[in-house]
Design a protein around this nucleic acid. Structure first.
Length: 419
RNA sequence: GUGACUGUAGCUCAGUUGGUUAGAGCACCUGUCUGUGGCACAGGGGGUCGUGGGUUCGAUGCCCAUCAGUCACCCCA
């Protein structure tokens, strides 16, 4: 019989790495609470239409990467490939805007995209992010950009860089794309097959083509979107920049920064790490002022970002030292008569002293149990064998200095309370 | 979806110009130590050399296919 394996592009997090996740998740909760953001959790799957209408039916995510299926009731469902759309859906559905003019939300969640796995890319992966509904003002853009950047900095990541851009409103972007296509069509024969596809489907991507010649043509002949956006858009962007300037955070205005999802308007940004390889974006986000209305809510400005947890952990990996977590007490039980008294004692210590206690369940030799206590880095071991049962005592051994004392059972709790 | 590279013990990897019982280090188990860890020493378990086919007297090694992994493209966190 062949063994069943995990699905391609998914990962088991084994006990020797989960502590990293736990620590990072705690930091994310703490950090967001410091900014007054509240956690939101949405279901693992949604109606497929939600993503078609928000992310964009022409995007790769929707076209070829979604895990979709028809369920037994005939509904077309999809495992969420991103989180802005579900959170926006929840915001609209529960009328969060009615009870509060501004909603500052954050999440930590698993996402699913059927892509070919590679470094920094999986089919199930995790993101944390924030979404803010209600403020159209540049200080809100700046707040979340500062949040994203300072959080990553606080983790000790040094090789990170922040790029920001503005892409105007959706209608302006549409007009700009048409201009771009008309202009660049003249050079079509000079483009590679991939870039020809881009020209038709997503000409903004031509700005960061891997093909040097293509990049050269585009850079020399094409105007950037900054030349086309409205006065208001430009003012908004300038205000975001000036707040960032005052905050002291280093950034670059990358006029070619493009985001792949349809719903973005005005501000977009990305944080990259140079230590990641080809998939170097740790965090991406921007403003999406038109999405709420587009999904059937009353027009509400919004802005948010998402950061890849696996990618963050990867960049962290060099500096993580496998902290050998210690336990407080290992309970060595030698005779079968010792099992019940030992387990009861262990429970008492857990409850009354708030210590971690592991009890032997393998009936190993004393020597093996001692080794186990040592391997687990126990501060103390408590030994109960036949002699101790007879005299209603236990041996308490300090594993650091090897000293041990014989103690009456009913005094042990007190001993550990005093600590 | 396309391309390149890689698959030998739980992990990291040697190895055979095709030759009979396939190795090391770490980890694990036991003993030296009859109820006491770390150190040391001695021993032990664990592999149909990814899977299937072909060539050959003989394949872990060569050929083909297949699966899996890794990295890159596309795209994205």
């Amino acid at each position: 019989m062949n063994k069943i394996r995990n699905i391609k592009g998914t990962k088991d997090l084994l006990p020797d790495t989960t502590f990293i996740w736990q620590e990072l998740e705690e930091k994310i909760h703490h950090f967001n609470q410091q900014f007054g953001y509240k956690e939101i959790r949405t279901p693992a799957f949604e109606e497929s239409d939600l993503f078609k209408r928000s992310v964009g039916s022409e995007t790769d995510i929707v076209n070829k990467e979604m895990y979709s299926w028809i369920d037994q009731g005939g509904n077309n469902l999809t495992l969420k490939p991103e989180l802005t759309a579900p959170v926006t859906r929840a915001y609209i559905q529960h009328e969060l805007g009615k009870s509060n003019p501004i909603n500052k939300l954050y999440y930590i969640d698993a996402l699913f995209r059927r892509e070919r796995p590679q470094k920094g890319r999986q089919r199930q992966f995790h993101q944390f992010g924030v979404e803010v509904f209600g403020s159209k003002f540049p200080e809100q853009d700046a707040e979340i950009i500062i949040m994203a950047f300072t959080f990553l900095q606080s983790l000790g990541l040094d090789d990170i860089s922040l790029e920001i851009n503005t892409i105007g409103s959706k209608s302006i972007r549409g007009a700009y794309i048409t201009i771009l296509q008309d202009l660049l069509n003249k050079y079509r024969q000079d483009f590679s097959a991939i870039d020809k596809q881009r020209l038709d489907k997503n000409p903004l991507r031509l700005f960061d083509s891997k093909d040097l010649k293509c990049r050269e043509i585009v850079n020399e002949t094409a105007p950037t979107i900054y030349d086309y956006i409205s006065k208001e858009d430009r003012l908004h962007f300038d205000n975001v920049c000036s707040i960032l300037n005052d905050s002291g955070i280093q950034y670059t205005h990358n006029q070619k920064l493009v985001r792949g999802l349809d719903y973005y308007t005005r501000t977009t940004f990305e944080i990259k790490s140079s230590s990641l390889g080809s998939q170097d974006a740790l965090c991406g986000g921007g403003r999406y002022d038109e999405l709420v209305e587009q999904l059937g809510g009353t027009s509400t400005p919004a802005v948010g970002f998402a950061a890849g947890i696996e990618r963050i952990i990867m960049t962290l990996e060099n500096q993580i030292q496998r902290s050998h977590k210690s336990i407080d007490i290992f309970m060595i039980l030698i005779s079968s008569d010792a099992l019940s008294p030992g387990m009861n004692l262990a429970n008492n210590i857990r409850n009354k002293c708030n210590l971690s206690v592991i009890t032997e369940t393998l009936r190993r030799s004393m020597r093996s149990q001692m080794r186990e206590a040592n391997r687990l880095n126990a501060n103390y071991s408590i030994i109960i064998g036949e002699d101790e049962i007879k005299s209603n005592t236990a041996i308490i051994k300090n594993m650091q200095n090897g000293e041990q004392i014989n103690m009456d059972m009913d005094k042990i709790i007190n001993y550990f309370i005093k600590g």
